[in-house]
């Protein structure tokens, strides 16, 4: 495809990249969050141990959830790109629709439908935000023509007597 997004790894390498990135996001965020939570829910004297224990048990679970979602989304994104042969925001929305449906399929068709629509809405919000920020960025960087200072009026011109 001629208009590929050069800021991202090409498919299928982007799938592995997003697996790792999403897992890292979930694990780091979960470690911070759950260590604070464990600290606050502990009696004095056991705060440090409880914070570390909570982070160790809960952060990998959150990381795994993030990784599954990120990897599956990238897989569907690459599949949609391969089928449509286009690069536009609809790729992400369609991939979000499939990802939400796939991960909610165990709850029955109603949960699948709701999960798919919900994920598509979330991706639509993000795509809209990206487009809006792109517009703002372009506006901020618009090239402005340099202002040339007015040429100073020469004294000889004003001093010249008017021809009668």
């Amino acid at each position: 495809m001629a208009s590929a997004d050069h800021t991202r790894d090409p498919c299928p390498y982007v799938i592995l990249n997003d697996f790792g990135a999403a897992f890292s996001m979930g694990t780091i965020g979960g470690a911070i969050w759950h260590s604070i939570k464990g600290w606050r829910n502990s009696p004095p004297g056991e705060k440090r141990i409880s914070a570390i224990a909570a982070a160790k048990t809960r952060a990998p679970v959150l990381g795994g959830n993030f990784g599954v979602w990120g990897g599956l989304f990238s897989t569907f994104d690459c599949a949609v790109k391969g089928v449509r042969r286009k690069e536009d925001p609809w790729n992400a929305i369609i991939a979000g629709f499939f990802t939400g449906g796939a991960l909610a399929v165990r709850g029955g068709w109603r949960a699948t439908r709701n999960g798919a629509i919900g994920c598509a809405c979330i991706l639509a919000v993000f795509e809209g935000l990206g487009i809006a920020l792109g517009r703002m960025n372009a506006e901020y960087n618009r090239p402005v023509a340099p202002v040339i200072p007015d040429a100073p009026a020469s004294g000889s011109t004003s001093a010249a007597p008017a021809a009668v």
Partner: peptide
Amino acid sequence: LNENANSSRIFALAMQQ
């Protein structure tokens, strides 16, 4: 901006779950 958009997509999906 693109990197942030991509990270946010991944996160949005995970958060909804």
